[in-house]
Design a protein around this nucleic acid. Structure first.
Length: 399
DNA sequence: TTTCCACCGGAAAATGAGGTCC
DNA sequence: GGACCTCATTTTCCGGTGGAAA
């Protein structure tokens, strides 16, 4: 890139945008002042939290809904108001919000809770049992009401079981008179199958279901956000309607709708347009998919990329798994890399197909041919190859 | 109905790198 | 300093599984 071009970019940034007034409101983590169509859920959650103000045990609650239906936004919205209120009134309540998928492990979930209740835990070196008992001891010792929100709780439960939930509920109000509320948020309605009946009866006292937004609801949400995010007259109403309709067709996902508006605005800026149009939204719709593929492939580990290269080497497939394994081993040898076991290779194929990079189909040829797993690449070979070429380790062998 | 093929995927163990505790 | 811990990744083992062929 020439110095002139870099200077142009800096110059444009200095001048500022003529499209966006405040792009931040189109990102997922922005909590708006108003959450339309979620008033009843907000009231129910606020009522549950409010019992702690009176030092009374509140109902625990499970919250369900598909991605982008406003679960996390509602909880964070009420939590912000709640913490502001108790701080103002000088009421001492421990609150903790932990995203179980981002935390990743049982131990890190405990570390996050510990931090929020003013307890230091080393980031490794203790057993989960020890960490849990320190958290419980701190709660007992402080005798302060506590509110813990487990977002994406299904990830924690399906991987590690319900030990933390069981211990927290057993050590709470019943034995110590410490009022508490535990909130579990999940995309998956069926995760309760993993719970011990005692935990289920204790935690499932209330359930709130978030239905997907309809196209007209999404339109109202987008119009509100767009009025803050864009300058007056910098976006067509038709563009907002289109983004709402496209997202409504995909399970009413508000996050995707906001992404679409943001990317459409960026495209309009790149093209020097004065207004975001329907065409920009359409382009954003396809660009979001390409960007997703780019991010997914770019962040894959080396051997997953080698498997993709093996698939590209055979023209994208379809190819039998065992034969693909042979191609993969030869590529590994050519770069002096030790190939993984077949079991691990098989696991990576499963991951690639879950990510939508590869497509696996099973054919059964019975006694003569057995059960054949046929794998092919899903998406544009050239596009994926270009992404893999960005990896310095693979730029020379990516044919 | 049984056999057989190639694969699926759960479970446990191994590995190695980071750390804490006493 | 040695025992013990987490964590991510990988290997090893092995009991399914579907369905055409025998």
């Amino acid at each position: 890139m020439s110095n002139d071009r870099i200077d142009d970019i800096f110059e444009e940034a200095f001048k500022g945008s003529n499209i966006f007034r405040n792009k931040n409101v189109l990102f997922h983590d922005y909590i708006p002042e108003r959450l339309p169509f979620r008033e009843s859920q907000i009231n129910r959650v606020a009522k549950i939290f409010s019992s702690l103000i009176r030092r009374e045990k509140g109902s625990n609650v499970f919250i369900y809904g598909k991605p982008g239906t406003g679960k996390t936004a509602v909880i964070k919205y009420v939590l912000n108001k709640f913490t502001d209120f108790v701080r103002e009134k000088g009421i001492n309540i421990h609150t903790s919000y932990v995203n179980c998928r981002i935390a990743g492990t049982e131990y890190r979930v405990l570390t996050s809770i510990a931090q929020d209740i003013g307890l230091h835990l080393p980031f490794t070196g203790l057993s989960v049992e020890e960490a849990l008992s320190r958290v419980i001891f701190k709660i007992k010792n402080d005798n302060i009401p506590f509110l813990i929100i487990f977002d994406e709780i299904d990830v924690l439960i399906s991987r590690y079981g319900d030990k933390i939930l069981y211990s927290l509920t057993r050590s709470g109000y019943e034995s110590l008179s410490v009022p508490y509320v535990i909130v579990g948020i999940s995309n998956n309605l069926r995760f309760k199958e993993y719970l011990d009946p005692r935990v289920l009866s204790s935690l499932g006292e209330e359930e709130i279901v978030f239905k997907p937004y309809t196209a007209s609801e999404l339109e109202v949400i987008l119009r509100e956000r767009a009025s803050i995010a864009f300058y007056k007259d910098a976006i067509d109403l038709a563009a907002i309607k289109l983004a709402a309709a496209l997202s409504a067709a995909e399970h009413g996902d508000a996050r995707k709708a906001l992404d679409m508006l943001r990317v459409a605005g960026e495209i309009a800026e790149e093209k020097g347009a004065s207004k975001v149009s329907e065409d920009h939204v359409r382009e954003a719709y396809s660009r979001i998919d390409v960007e997703r593929t780019y991010e997914v492939v770019r962040s894959l580990p080396l051997h997953s990329k080698l498997i993709i290269l093996s698939l590209i080497k055979v023209g994208g497939g379809p190819i039998q798994a065992s034969k693909l394994f042979g191609v993969y081993k030869s590529i590994c040898e050519s770069i002096g890399e030790k190939p993984l076991s077949y079991r691990r290779f098989h696991g990576l194929i499963t991951e690639l197909s879950l990510l939508g990079i590869a497509n696996r189909r099973i054919y059964n040829y019975g006694r003569r041919g057995g059960r054949i797993s046929s794998i092919r690449i899903d998406g544009s070979i050239n596009e994926i190859l270009n992404i893999i070429r960005d990896d310095p380790l693979l730029e020379d062998i990516a044919f």
